[in-house]
Amino acid sequence: MNATVALFLTIACTSLSQIFQKQAAMSLENNSGSNLPAGVAFLINPNLVISVILLGSGFVSWLWVLSEWDVSFAYPFLSLNLVVVMCGSKFVFSENIKRHHWLGAFSIIAGVALISGGGAS
């Protein structure tokens, strides 16, 4: 597996993790009728467990990227996370995305494209 695949995995895992965190936060809010103590309900919440697993996997694949690429080249790619989460918040949670958010997303994508065009070291 090369670093590009690992980077793709990192962004996919960390972005998905944030969407599951949001899902967990929402399901805990709606869970006030449960018999379980709040702390236990929090720890065994499936959304939260999935988000933690995804976060861990994202971290390991990120280490993989770092072992091959310069950090000044690799780290900016993580900003794509915000773009993915923005799209996720629109399509999963139907949040309202405004024009300046889209402009921000394009600015991030342009920055990442410029850096990736410049080469890995």
């Binding site: 080249f73 900016p76 915000l82 958010h101 921000g104 600015s107 342009a110 920055g111 850096i115 065009g117």
Partner: peptide, 21 residues
């Protein structure tokens, strides 16, 4: 690591983008 124009301008665009997004 090296300073290059693509990295410098790219990071600038990213910081601006994060501020907006």
């Amino acid at each position: 690591e090296t300073i290059t124009w693509p990295k410098t301008i790219g990071v600038g665009l990213i910081v601006f983008g994060i501020y907006l997004i």
